[in-house]
Amino acid sequence: MTNKTNSVNTHSAHKGSGHFLKQKFSAMILIPIVLWFCFSIAIMPSMDYEYMLLWLKSPYNYILLSITLITGFYHLQLGLQMIIEDYIAEDNLQRNMILMTKWICIMLCVVGLISLFYIVLG
């Protein structure tokens, strides 16, 4: 039915466990932090700009939100890498796509952190 080359992968890159562990650790950090985030939003008495600003200006919230952004995008990048490895077989394309998603995630994360910084400062 398929026309795959009949070769067996006998070479081990001696990596794989690294990605696996990073994924588990970032997921472990994300569980409490996402719960905190949802909970904070849920118990907010009002959603207006003034109140949100006040909330963000608390150093406690500001730091936790930054951690959410960093871990979230890190975890997203690891997941995207896995999907690309699954479905894109061609080596060069696979490598480039992974690189591209990595940079997009870094960029979005940095944009998020800078915006947060400006909001809190401004």
């Binding site: 992968n9 070479h11 081990s12 890159a13 001696h14 794989g16 466990s17 990605h19 696996f20």
Partner: peptide, 13 residues
């Protein structure tokens, strides 16, 4: 060590 590989083992989800 031989199995610690992104493709040989870690394609299992």
């Amino acid at each position: 060590d031989e199995l610690d590989d992104t493709f040989k083992l870690y394609r299992c989800h």
